[in-house]
Simulated scan of single mutants.
Amino acid sequence: MQNQRLKAILDQHGLPHSFVYLAPAFPIVQVMWADGVNQLTEQTMICKHIRSHCSRLSEMAAGLEVIGDSELARFEQEFIYRKPSKEVLQSLTDAALEGISDSSSDSDSCGHNLYDHKQLMKACMEIAAACTVRDDRAQMSGFPPDRIYEEEQRLIEELMALVR
């Protein structure tokens, strides 16, 4: 997937063009950071999704390595283990979603390809549900708290509208 706007933003922030192939990971990362923290469960899950995506990309490229280990480690450092700028992450996500929404919703019915809209939505929802809201006030009132943070829910709803 060639996305000139995404490449320009990557250039602007000194990030490699190979991150274009990780474009579907940006919305997932944004959901992870929506509550302001990245918890170990979320980190583990998102790394699993991204590594599966990279493996599937390599399979689709007849076994060629699309994203190297060093590039993957850099992506994880820049976006998963260290909190990125909200503005940078938003611009990367917006640019990534432009390309993703143009792709077929069933571009890969087998395997774990995050360009597949269903796989991308599933990954976002898993991240949102991994570490739920803890609202002591709601528990004291006898009403169950919302499971998903409002910001995570808003981001998932936006993604759903784009990939329909």
Rank of each mutant, 00 (worst) to 15 (best):
L159P: 03
P24S: 03
E65Y: 08
H13T: 01
L155I: 06
W33Q: 00
P144T: 14
L89M: 03
E59D: 09
S85T: 06
S58K: 06
M32N: 04
Y21Q: 07
R51C: 07
F19Q: 02
D146V: 08
I127Y: 00
E98A: 09
H13F: 06
V88L: 13
L64G: 11
R82L: 14
M1E: 09
Y149N: 04
A95T: 02
S55I: 08
E152W: 04
G99A: 04
T41R: 13
Q12Y: 08
Y149R: 09
A96W: 00
L57C: 06
M1P: 05
A95Q: 05
Q39L: 14
C47N: 15
Q30S: 08
L162P: 09
E59L: 09
D116W: 05
M140R: 15
R5V: 15
A61H: 10
Y81A: 07
T93M: 01
M45S: 11
H112R: 15
A123H: 03
Q119M: 15
S107C: 15
N38D: 11
P24V: 02
R5S: 10
G14A: 07
Q153E: 12
S141E: 06
A123S: 09
G111V: 00
S91F: 08
L89K: 02
E151D: 13
S107H: 12
A25L: 07
Q2T: 15
T44N: 15
L15V: 04
R82M: 12
L72G: 03
S107P: 08
Q12I: 10
G142S: 03
M121K: 11
I127H: 00
M60Y: 12
L89R: 00
R137L: 08
P27Q: 01
P16G: 02
L114Y: 01
Q90Y: 12
M125V: 14
Y149A: 10
Y21E: 11
G142W: 04
